[in-house]
Amino acid sequence: MMKNMDTNTANIVIQARNLTKRFGDFTATDAISFEVYKGEIFGFLGANGAGKTTAMKILIGISKPSAGEAQVAGFDVYTQAELIKKNIGYMSQKFSLYEDLTIRENIRFFGGIYGLSRAELKIKGDALIKKLGLEAEADKLVASLPLGWRQKLSFSIAILHNPQIVFLDEPTGGVDPLTRRQFWDMIYEAAHRGVTIFVTTHYMDEAEYCDRVSIMVDGKIEALASPKKLKEQFHAQSMDEVFHQLARKAKRAE
């Protein structure tokens, strides 16, 4: 929350300057600039096709920008993509865990990718399973877990290696309301410990939970402030209204 978030330049963990990505003559991400501070929950909103996914791919080091600059966790997206990947966690709605591996195997596998030792994995893995209350299910296949549980597990695994930043791509789509809130409790808790959260969502109530929110329209960031300020700025009652006012201006459908 704002309280434990320091807006000093020294505490910038993501910095983007005129970040641009073009595909042929189509500019998916059009010179966006923003900063994300340590321990912040940063909401990255936008309509389908506004360019969120493209920007996110650049920030997690799997896509090179066409122009502009960006540093993530102090590393350059052009030259230090591998270092970025080591220092972030990533979780997407589409792929998060191997369904045909057990919970324990998934933890071991993903923890191993980030270089956790066997001993560390054992301790951390057991603690994680205990915390999620999955002791009885630990050796069952992930496929047998309900979606909400899977997403909670997936998030826990994404922050297992203590990354500086964790990127969450629509983590709560289709999850039941109760689990969705438990999920956000986990996000709060991680942010409290100083992990920076970069999250996209289509639930506008979730946008309210963010310290700051950016809204992308047609490849550009049209608004960036705390939910409270945005609501004042757009004379809106809720983030939903703010979003509608901005996204209605969108010209492109792709």
Binding site: A47, G173, M204, F243
Partner: peptide
């Protein structure tokens, strides 16, 4: 409307 942004959903 799953995975669709709020404007398109509306």
């Amino acid at each position: 409307t799953t995975g669709v942004d709020p404007v398109s959903r509306k």
